[in-house]
Simulated scan of single mutants.
Amino acid sequence: MKLRKVTAASAVVLALAVTATACGSSDDKDSGSSGGGKKIAIGIKFDQPGIGQKTPQGYTGFDVDVAKYVAKKLGYDEDQIQWKEAKSADRETMLQRGDVQFIAASYSITPEREEKVDFAGPYLLAHQDVLVRADDDSIKSPADLNSKKLCSVTGSTSAQNVRDKLAPKANLLKYPTYSACLTGLQNKAVDALTTDDSILAGYASQDQFKGKFKLGGLKMTNENYGIGVKKGSDLKDKINKALEEMVADGSWEKAVQANFGPANYQYEPAPKIGDVKS
């Protein structure tokens, strides 16, 4: 009898241990949509200084600051965030698969993307622009790019768009990275680099480039940065509320100045939620 009692007790303890382990495993994997879980997975860029960059010290950039603020409003502390790299070509798939709860990664709102995912925001209105040397005053309009050496990153359509629509005689040079373009710009191998002004400002704000470049202020396109969520997710409204609060309490302005200030970025005021500029 005594042996049977011990065996029964052991079975109960074992059952409780298995249950506790199962519960712990569930909690560890829970990335609930309203802050109820232990972790939240957020997609950002890992290679865009000033926007989203992975460094030995952690993650930095305007999108990172926005994502942290939103996560906090959703009930997550910074140490509960799982950062995941959201490359441009992978963003919709990451959201559709549930790899991340939301993406803040210089993610322009477009009709084509809205067919696949939902967007909160916009939270920043950027424009396609050019970056030139600080002492170069020869480029004051898109037409001035004709016959200029315009740097394009391999795989990007920004420079091609300029030549197709605004400066047909621009001389396109393709470099592997934006950093290579900046080195070429510094060495006068190229005359200008083009992409979103926010991205250009982020690169120009790096310590090694401070004071060497300036934005042209051409505003060739409107790029409405939004936070992507899975189609039909209830996170959209919650994130919109968080973005409104970020603007209202001054955190948005602080984040812009901290990440883009050194490049003298003439940024637009915080856009109103739902106001997507065409």
Score class of each variant (00 low, 15 high):
4 R>A: 15
7 T>G: 14
10 S>K: 13
15 A>K: 03
19 T>Y: 15
21 T>E: 14
30 D>I: 08
36 G>W: 09
37 G>N: 03
38 K>R: 15
38 K>G: 00
39 K>H: 12
40 I>W: 04
41 A>M: 02
43 G>P: 00
43 G>A: 04
50 G>Y: 11
54 K>Q: 01
59 Y>A: 02
59 Y>L: 05
61 G>I: 08
62 F>G: 01
71 A>I: 02
72 K>V: 08
76 Y>N: 05
90 D>Y: 08
93 T>S: 14
94 M>G: 10
99 D>S: 13
99 D>N: 13
104 A>R: 02
105 A>W: 06
106 S>F: 01
109 I>S: 02
118 D>E: 09
125 L>C: 11
135 D>I: 10
136 D>T: 05
137 D>V: 07
146 N>S: 08
151 C>V: 09
152 S>D: 07
153 V>P: 07
153 V>D: 12
157 T>N: 12
159 A>P: 00
160 Q>D: 15
163 R>L: 06
164 D>I: 09
170 A>H: 01
173 L>W: 08
180 A>C: 10
181 C>W: 08
184 G>Y: 10
184 G>W: 09
185 L>D: 12
186 Q>I: 10
194 T>N: 09
196 D>R: 11
197 D>Q: 10
199 I>S: 07
201 A>F: 06
202 G>N: 07
203 Y>L: 09
205 S>L: 11
206 Q>D: 06
206 Q>A: 02
207 D>C: 11
209 F>Y: 14
211 G>Q: 03
217 G>S: 00
229 V>I: 03
233 S>K: 04
233 S>F: 10
234 D>Q: 07
235 L>G: 07
237 D>G: 07
238 K>E: 12
238 K>M: 07
242 A>V: 09
243 L>F: 11
244 E>I: 06
255 A>E: 00
256 V>F: 02
258 A>F: 01
262 P>K: 06
267 Y>N: 13
268 E>R: 11
273 I>H: 03
278 S>K: 15
